[in-house]
């Protein structure tokens, strides 16, 4: 059963995602930093993950790639700024198709709680426009026609 999830805007350029996991922080840390494990959960149904390269040290680089339904590849790259096992990761993030107005800084905190781990992921966009672009890429599930989805995109 999924644990409580929340996503909120905590500042003009900041989003905060929270989620609980039924495993201790050390295990969550491994699942988030071991490429073989990352390949098992970072994919999406229509966008299978095809590459996870992680140089797990401060200043080290990482890159993930997903295959698009049309056959192209979309990727995200960045570097680790802070690695404090098992509780804190600060990394930069930039998608190949930059729809967030430049690099974002993602801070992941893994705190031990009774049930396991509380993960708090803070995403700092470079500008308010970047945050809005990231949110505008969202569309509700269940909308089928092109123009319905376009309306949702445009109305945001």
């Amino acid at each position: 059963m999924p644990l409580p999830f929340s996503l909120e805007q905590t500042g003009p350029t900041t989003l905060l995602v929270k989620r609980g996991f039924a495993a201790p922080p050390a295990r969550v840390w491994r699942a988030m930093t071991d490429p073989a494990l990352v390949l098992q959960w970072m994919g999406m149904p229509d966008h299978p993950i095809t590459k996870a390269e992680i140089d797990l040290r401060e200043g080290g680089a990482y890159r993930y790639e997903w295959r698009m339904p049309e056959g192209g590849i979309i990727g995200v790259s960045g570097t680790f700024r802070v690695l404090e096992q098992p509780g804190k990761i600060v990394q930069t993030e930039l998608f190949d198709e930059d729809w967030t107005d430049g690099e974002t800084v993602v801070t992941t905190l893994l705190e031990p709680v009774e049930a396991g781990t509380r993960a708090s992921v803070t995403i700092e966009y470079r500008s308010e426009q970047g945050l809005h672009m990231a949110l505008q890429s969202g569309m509700d599930e269940g909308m089928s026609s092109t123009y319905d989805q376009l309306d949702a995109l445009l109305a945001s």
Binding site: F5, L7, V17, R19, P45, G138, M139, L153
Partner: peptide, 18 residues
């Protein structure tokens, strides 16, 4: 095809991470 909301993306991935 590519764009899912940020929320859907995180929820899907975290369910897989579980």
């Amino acid at each position: 095809d590519w764009a899912m909301s940020l929320r859907d993306t995180y929820e899907t991935r975290f369910a897989q991470l579980d």
